[in-house]
Design a protein around this nucleic acid. Structure first.
Length: 588
RNA sequence: GGGGGUAUAGCUCAGUUGGUUAGAGCGCUGGCCUGUCAAGCCAGAGGUCGCGGGUUCGAGUCCCGUUACUCCCGCCA
C-alpha cells in the first residue's frame, strides 16, 4: 500500500505519469527548488518518492501569490491538475518529466530555515554538519536509499529465516558484564547501590540459553554495544543479524546461511555466486596473508623456500636457518615504479613488523633493477621468475621472516598494492574461512585467549591436544568474508559442562572465576543442552557493502562521530548531581 | 594510548616571501523576467580566519599549546 493512502494527499510526487493527465491530485512535500519567471513560477516538490514540477500561473492570483512566497524546504500541501508539459519542455532526466501539476491551491504546512547544506546527492559537506542536521541529510536521495536498502535486507532476512523455522526472540539490553572480549558499556543500578548492568557486546550467551530452552532455531536483529575506539566501519552501537540453531553440524549451519544469503542478495538485487567457496584459515594465511582475504584480485603469496634454500644472501639464509620462511608476491604492473614508491612499500613492510623488504623490478624485457639481485645466482633468478610468474613490467616483493609474520606482512602489502594498482574486480566475492585455531597465545597477558569466543567447540579429534598443544587445536568455526571485509562469523558451541570447564582452565580462567562470570551458562549446559551452533552478521557492514559505501555511518540513521559523540543530540552529556546521587555515583 | 590529514562567509574552497579594507562559486535577501528544470540578468547582505598564548611595527599566514572532525595503528573474543 502506498504512503499516499490514509493521507492528506492522493499521490506521491514521483508517481505521476502521463496516464494521470487530467486528474485532480493533492500532493504534500517539501519545496525542492523554485524557478520564478515573474509571470510564471515553477516549483519542484519533493517527497520520499522523488520530484515533480508544479506550475503557478498568474491566472490564479491567490495560489500564485503563495508560490512567490514559498522557500526551499518549506512544507506544502497543494492541489492541482496533472497536465502534459507543452511540447519541447519535457525533461527526459526526470521520471516525472512528461508531466507537471498546474496548481490551483497551495497551503503552507510549515516554513523552514535555509538548510545548512543542499538537499541533493553528491554534496561534500563535513560529516559532523550532516549529522547535526541529520533530519535534513536523510532527505537526500542517496541517504534515503541507504535506509531503504537496509530495510529491504532486514525484511529479506526475516522472511528467509522465518521460512526456515527460525523464531525471532529479543534478549536483554541491560545485562551482566562478562570478561573476555571488548570493553563493556556499563549502566549503574539505582536500586542496587554499587552494582552495574552492562550493555551486551552480542546476545551470544542468551542465544545459547535459548537453545537449551528448546527454541531450536532462533534469530534476532540485535543491537550490540562495544566501548572501543571507532573506525570507518565500527560504531559503538551496531546491529547484528544473530542466528543460532540446534541439532546441527557445521555443514548444516553453512548450508542454511548460504540459502538465506542467496535469498537476501536476490532481494537486494545483487548478483551473487551460486556457491560460496571455502578456504581454511591456514590456507588463507598461506595464500593471502590474511584471515579475511579480498578475492576480487589474485596476487597470491608464493613460497620461495625451495628457491632460496641454498641462498648466499644472508637475510634469506638467516631466516631459513631460524626456521622462518621466504615468501613473495608479484605486483604485476609495478615494475616501472620509482625508487620512492618502492621505498614506501618497504616502509609499510617495516611498519607491519618485517625487518625489511627485498625487491626485484623487471621494468622491461631483459632489464632487472634490484638492490639484492646481485646476491642471487642465475638459477635462483630463473626460479624466482618461474614461481612468481614474472613477466616484463612486474615487481617481485620478497619477505624473509618468521612464518606467520612473513605471511602477514605480504598480506598487508597485497591489500595496499591492489588498491594502488586498482586490481579489484566488480561485484561481490564472498568466501568462507573455516577451521580457525581455537586459541592464540597472548604474549602481553601471558595466557591463551579464544580466537572467536570461549564457547567455541574444538575439533573432536583435537581434544587430546587441548592441554598439551593448545594452539594446534582447530575449531568448528567459520567467517563469511566479502571483498576483504569480515561480514559474519560463527561457531559450533561447546554443549558440555566438563569440556567448557577444560577450555576455561586452559585459558587461565579458574573454576571460581568461571562460576562467577559464566556460572549461569555452565548451569544451563548441565540442564540438557543440545548440540548447537550459529552465526552473527555485521548488519551495518553488510548493508554498507551492498550500498557501495566506505563508511558504516552512511547506512545508520543516527550515527556517532569517531569520538562517540552525537552532534545532533549532544550525547554524551553531563547529568545532574541529583541523577548521580540516585545511582550512587560521585565523579573525580 | 600513538601517528597522519583538516579547520577562513550558511556550504565548498582560494588567500603568494608576514603588509592597506580577507576573496570566489554556490546558497541567502531584494528587484526584473511567462517555459524553466543547477533557470537567467541586476543589486545587496553575510567573517571571533576553530580556540588560547607567543614572536613581530604588523599574523588568516610563523612558533607553542589546545579542541573538534576525519583516516590509520594499538584495541575491537
Amino acid at each position: 500500500m502506498s504512503p499516499a493512502s490514509h493521507s492528506i494527499r492522493t499521490h506521491l510526487c514521483a508517481d505521476l505519469r502521463s496516464v494521470h493527465i487530467g486528474e485532480q491530485v493533492t500532493l504534500a512535500g517539501w519545496v525542492h527548488r523554485r524557478r520564478d519567471h515573474g509571470g510564471l513560477i515553477f516549483i519542484d516538490v519533493r517527497d520520499r518518492s522523488g520530484l515533480v514540477q508544479c506550475t503557478f500561473s498568474p491566472d490564479d492570483a491567490e495560489a500564485f501569490a503563495l508560490g512567490e512566497r514559498v522557500r526551499p524546504e518549506w512544507v506544502v500541501l497543494l492541489e492541482g491538475t496533472v497536465a502534459a508539459r507543452p511540447e519541447g519542455t519535457t525533461n527526459a532526466d526526470m521520471p516525472t518529466g512528461e508531466v507537471e501539476v498546474n496548481v490551483a491551491s497551495l497551503t503552507v504546512l510549515n516554513t523552514a530555515e535555509t538548510p545548512p547544506f543542499e538537499v541533493e546527492d553528491g554534496i561534500e559537506t563535513d560529516e559532523s554538519t550532516r549529522m547535526r542536521y541529520r533530519y535534513v541529510d536523510v532527505r537526500r536521495p542517496e541517504m534515503l536509499s541507504c535506509l531503504v536498502l537496509r530495510d529491504r535486507v532486514a525484511q529479506a532476512f526475516r522472511r528467509s529465516l522465518g521460512d526456515r523455522g527460525f523464531i525471532e526472540v529479543e534478549t536483554p539490553i541491560l545485562t551482566k558484564s562478562t570478561p573476555e572480549g571488548a570493553r563493556d558499556f556499563i549502566v549503574p543500578s539505582r536500586m542496587n547501590p554499587g552494582l552495574f548492568y552492562a550493555l551486551p557486546q552480542s546476545p551470544q550467551l542468551f542465544k545459547q540459553l535459548l537453545m537449551v530452552g528448546g527454541l531450536d532455531r532462533y534469530y534476532q536483529i540485535a543491537r550490540c554495544f562495544r566501548d572501543e575506539d571507532l573506525r570507518a566501519d565500527r560504531q559503538p552501537e551496531f546491529t547484528q543479524i544473530d542466528i543460532e540453531m540446534s541439532f546441527c553440524t557445521q555443514e548444516h549451519v553453512l548450508a542454511t546461511v548460504e540459502e538465506v544469503m542467496a535469498e537476501v542478495m536476490d532481494a537486494a538485487g545483487v548478483a551473487w555466486p551460486a556457491e560460496i567457496p571455502r578456504l581454511t584459515h591456514a590456507a588463507a594465511m598461506d595464500r593471502y596473508g590474511s584471515d579475511r582475504p579480498d578475492t576480487r584480485y589474485g596476487m597470491e603469496l608464493h613460497c620461495l623456500v625451495d628457491t632460496f634454500a641454498n641462498s648466499e644472501f644472508k637475510v634469506f639464509s638467516g631466516a631459513l636457518a631460524a626456521g622462518g620462511r621466504v615468501k613473495g608476491i608479484n605486483a604485476k604492473g609495478a615494475g616501472d615504479w620509482s625508487r620512492g614508491r618502492i621505498d614506501a612499500l618497504n616502509q609499510i613492510a617495516v611498519d607491519s613488523g618485517a625487518k625489511g623488504l627485498a625487491w626485484v623490478a623487471f621494468p622491461t624485457e631483459g632489464d632487472v633493477r634490484s638492490p639484492v639481485a646481485k646476491f642471487f645466482t642465475d638459477d635462483e633468478m630463473a626460479a624466482l621468475r618461474e614461481v612468481l610468474d614474472i613477466a616484463p613490467g612486474d615487481l617481485a616483493l620478497i619477505v624473509a621472516d618468521e612464518h606467520d609474520l612473513a605471511n602477514e606482512v605480504l598480506g598487508v602489502l597485497r591489500v595496499h598494492l591492489a588498491e594502488e594498482l586498482e586490481l579489484a574486480a566488480d561485484g561481490f566475492h564472498p568466501l568462507w574461512i573455516v577451521d580457525f585455531p581455537l586459541l592464540s597465545w597472548d604474549a602481553d597477558e601471558e595466557r591463551y585467549t579464544a580466537n572467536h569466543h570461549p564457547f567455541t567447540r574444538p575439533f573432536d579429534e583435537h581434544l587430546e591436544m587441548l592441554e598439551s598443544d593448545p594452539t594446534s587445536v582447530l575449531s568448528y568455526s567459520y567467517d563469511l568474508v566479502i571483498n576483504g571485509l569480515e561480514v559474519g562469523g560463527g561457531t559450533l558451541r561447546v554443549h558440555d559442562t566438563a569440556l567448557q570447564q577444560r577450555i576455561f582452565s586452559v585459558m587461565g580462567i579458574g573454576e571460581e572465576e568461571a562460576a562467577e562470570k559464566f556460572g549461569f551458562l555452565l548451569d544451563a549446559l548441565a540442564h540438557g543442552a543440545p548440540p548447537h551452533g550459529g552465526i552473527a552478521f555485521g548488519f551495518d557492514r553488510l548493508v554498507m557493502l551492498l550500498a557501495g559505501g566506505r563508511s558504516i555511518r552512511d547506512v545508520i540513521a543516527f550515527p556517532k562521530t569517531s569520538s562517540g559523540a552525537c552532534p545532533l543530540t549532544g550525547a554524551p552529556d553531563v547529568v545532574s548531581a541529583r541523577q548521580l546521587k540516585e545511582v550512587h555515583l560521585s565523579l573525580d
